[in-house]
Nucleic acid binder design. Structure first.
Lengths: 110, 110
DNA sequence: GCCTATATATAGAGTCCCTATACAGTAGCG
DNA sequence: CGCTACTGTATAGGGACTCTATATATAGGC
């Protein structure tokens, strides 16, 4: 699995990405991230919930207790318009970071 | 410039990368990183020095006060064998993170 | 003499992620 | 029926990394 110090900050993008398809509850968000990345990216639930609250307080997510006949109380998160608008710039920023690191790696061969 | 929370943890790789070419002192390390990445990656010196101490205490770097006729006291850092050995796995881990984030982005198109 | 660039260093705060822990409902099994 | 495993949300406490702000001092240009 990828080390904690390296994946730092990637959780936000990961959550936004899996919610792009549709609303999910916390536990399922964690499972999707782990499954879609073949286990490379994994967030403990104790990391995930505070993150969801932060993202909600920033207006990127909107939470709602599912009322539709679910036996269990589950909190469903969906992307807001603001959250969706964050996705593209965030991805761009991550791509820039990878290009920058690649350039540093190439420099010594030049 | 890339946000602080996103580039978190990338400083180690950046420092190891610029030192791959040869020994440098702190101030020059910061300048190389900024120049080689076209300003995309920039670390303030107040972030850099503690990082250099950490990396030295881990045995990845070796510091020495330059004695060769320099008017100014400058601390020169060079990669140790252990530090050089860290480079490949670190780069691999970063590539894995990149692939994982890409997979999350692709998932919603499938 | 003054300002900027060079060069190292510490203090304090903020953010993010972790381990550990707690609580509780559901389902399978013997 | 009780045991266990899985699902699901939640908080406490701590560690790690980077930031802003600050201090100190030399070198070079005007």
């Amino acid at each position: 699995m990828i080390g904690a110090n390296i994946k730092r900050g990637s959780a936000e993008l990961a959550v936004l990405s899996v919610l792009e398809t549709g609303p999910l509850h916390g536990y399922e968000i964690a499972r999707r991230i782990e499954r879609n990345t073949r286990g490379a990216l994994r967030f403990t639930l104790a990391s995930l919930y505070p993150l969801l609250y932060r993202m909600e307080s920033r207006g990127w997510l909107k939470a709602a207790w599912s009322e539709t006949g679910d036996a269990r109380a589950r909190r469903c998160y969906r992307l807001t318009a603001a959250g969706r608008k964050k996705l593209a710039p965030l991805r761009k920023e991550w791509n820039e970071l990878f290009r920058a690191l690649a350039r540093l790696a190439e420099a010594h061969h030049a």
